[in-house]
């Protein structure tokens, strides 16, 4: 019995310590005198790895999700003679929910896992210690550019996702199923608000970007420096980040649209 209670206490302490370590890592990496000349090329490199290389998977999945929304929405709406509402249905579900959330999930799988694995391997091969030996702060040199790259990339990716998804819905709804083109766009414009829908979607994806990148970096930085440890950390990144995104999405939706 006492062992059980002790085990519970240990888990609690580990969780709190882990959260504290993650916060400290982030603060140490981000707070400090910025050195634009040095950090700019690093940021560019990471933006390329994290953002540009994720573009293809985002565009392809956005197109297909938009097309599926168009098809499913049409089949339901046509029963009510309301197929002209297809435009706002596709646009609102993409802008408010699917754009930020699916982008964050794909980002966690595509970029988050690779960030964790990269940093975990750096740790396992003592590269982080070597940097410290040379007087370079690995948090500033390795963690910070990756964090900012993720933070800037994901909202852009989410916007691309939504735009491509709306185009996919347009292709299926208007080009294939014959919804009136003028009604598709004008009813969409009448129902989508700039501040309510687009800006809130961007805020959502900024929050997700922060959380996913942070989790990925911390899991890599704090992993056990063995092959098993790295593999566990990578899995844990994808699982934790996805759960955090879905949970936060509910909270944010309740705050914004509730």
């Amino acid at each position: 019995m006492l062992d059980r209670i002790a085990a519970l206490g240990r888990v609690t302490l580990d969780t709190v310590a882990g959260a504290g370590a993650a916060l400290l890592m982030l603060l140490k990496a981000l707070i400090g005198k910025p050195n634009v000349r040095k950090s700019w090329p690093l940021l560019m490199q990471q933006m390329y790895a994290v953002g540009v290389l994720s573009l293809i998977i985002i565009v392809v999945s956005g197109l297909f999700i938009g097309m599926v929304l168009g098809l499913q929405g049409y089949n339901i709406l046509v029963d009510f003679g309301a197929e002209q509402s297809l435009g706002p249905m596709v646009a609102l579900s993409l802008l408010r929910e699917l754009g930020p959330v699916v982008t964050a999930l794909l980002f966690a799988g595509r970029a988050g896992s690779s960030l964790t694995a990269e940093i975990g391997l750096m740790k396992a091969t003592e590269q982080l210690s070597s940097l410290e030996m040379m007087g370079v702060d690995p948090l500033r040199r390795v963690i910070a550019p990756r964090f900012w790259a993720g933070f800037y990339s994901m909202p852009l990716l989410a916007l691309v996702f939504s735009a491509v998804g709306i185009f996919g819905g347009y292709l299926v709804g208007v080009r294939w199923l014959g919804v009136d083109e003028g009604a598709f766009w004008s009813v969409m414009q009448a129902n989508v608000e700039w501040g309510q829908d687009i800006v809130n979607g961007i805020i959502k994806s900024l929050v997700f970007a922060f959380v996913v990148t942070w989790i990925a970096l911390h899991k890599g930085y704090s992993c056990t420096p063995t092959s098993v440890g790295i593999s566990r950390a990578t899995t844990s990144t994808v699982v934790t980040a996805s759960l955090a995104v879905l949970g936060l999405d509910f909270v944010l939706t309740a705050l914004m649209f509730g």
Partner: peptide, 25 residues
């Protein structure tokens, strides 16, 4: 790399413009 990132940012902004001008009122 810089060119690719620049294009990426431009694509993102174009998407925002598309959403703002075409999809929203």
């Amino acid at each position: 790399t810089q060119l690719a990132v620049g294009l990426f940012v431009i694509i993102g902004i174009l998407a925002l413009l598309f959403l703002g001008l075409r999809a929203a009122n």
